[in-house]
Computed example of a mutant assay.
Amino acid sequence: MSTRSAALIGTGLIGASMGLALRTAGWTVSGWDPDPAALATAVAGGALDSAASSAEHAIEGAELVVLAGPPRAVIQTLADLETEALVIDVAGVKEPICRAGAHLAHFVGTHPMAGREQSGPGAASGSLFRGASWVIVDDTVAAEDVVAVEELVTSFGANPVRMTAAEHDLAVAIVSHLPQVLAATLLGEAERHDEALPLASGSFRDLTRVALSDPVMWTELLGENRGAVVSELRSFSARLDSIADDVEAEISVEAFLSRSRDLRRTLAPPVMAVRVILEDQPGELAAVGRALAESSVDVRDLQLRHGPQGGGGVLTLSVRPGEAEALRAALTTEGFTLAE
């Protein structure tokens, strides 16, 4: 049986993670990136079998082409691309990209709802897509191509979700693009008050985590999806004004807060917290590192709360829901006691 071949154009966080996932699934992956350092890091990290000298060289002979650059770069690549291979992209906006790829025989717009605040191939993980929703744009696309992409992303452990390009762009404006702007706005507001940031704790950190993401990439995403983003920003602003009016008039907001709590409970937890007790002795963090390597989990966050006298404490590791049990087992094997 011949090895399947894929071309990866763009080796940032998502692209390099795609390369790792493809190679794990049995594909041979050739890649190219306009940044030689990013390309070298992707090769060194095992995301590619080989580095190509150009995008054209990478694509030559490939059965699958993955465009993993920012939206404008993807649009430019699509404008000049001629291939009979199956082509997908992984950018966070779909309408302009699907228009740009409409001339290809086998183009499917996609978007994995996965990522992390770190950027670049050095932060890539082959497990990044496990348990994540992966949008597959199914309007004006051949049914067999949609099925082929669904099978591909399922092999990565992701959950395929069919949507139109317009449905996707409105949805991500609400659940991805708006939160990015809100995180930056919250930090900007806190910066205005000298006494605020020193008091920031877990809830503020959780709400603003995405502000660590690449500002260049996000400027482009917001611009390419500006219609939906501006509409949702104005709608959200009106909601805030209404809440401010109620608080000012001493009208209870209990029903509003109760409804939001009920809605939040319907969501699967984005992460599972695994708490491990650390003793005040050498080698504890090294043993945690061995457990992380053995379980191959994707750590989304970690926090260390020191003991009363500063030694030892409780380390909280936040991982994807499907990975918590593997991490608990590895930590137990290393001799740790887990906190409830």
Rank of each mutant, 00 (worst) to 15 (best):
A68V: 06
V74P: 03
E167I: 11
G31V: 01
F107R: 01
G31N: 05
H111A: 11
H106Q: 07
A190W: 14
L212I: 13
R209D: 00
S260T: 08
A211Y: 08
L199Y: 15
T332W: 07
G26H: 04
L20A: 00
W218G: 04
G109A: 06
T110W: 11
A171D: 09
V141I: 07
E250H: 14
P112D: 05
A171L: 11
V93I: 08
V137A: 00
S318L: 10
D280G: 00
V90A: 06
V172W: 07
A7V: 15
G202P: 04
L292T: 02
S50G: 00
H193E: 13
L78D: 01
P215D: 02
V216T: 14
V66F: 03
R99D: 14
P321F: 05
G126N: 03
R4K: 06
L20F: 00
D169C: 01
A173S: 09
A58I: 10
V175K: 04
L199C: 12
A183P: 09
V271C: 10
L315D: 01
A51I: 02
T24P: 09
D298M: 06
R130F: 12
L263A: 15
D206V: 02
P34G: 09
V230N: 13
R320D: 11
D301Y: 01
I136V: 12
A143C: 08
G131S: 04
A42V: 08
P71G: 00
E56M: 03
P282Y: 02
A91H: 06
E284P: 00
A183W: 07
A330R: 02
Q303Y: 13
R275P: 02
G202K: 03
T266N: 08
R130C: 13
T41Y: 04
L48M: 07
L263T: 15
G223F: 15
V93L: 02
G313Y: 10
E144G: 08
G188T: 12
D206K: 06
L64E: 00
S125I: 07
R23G: 07
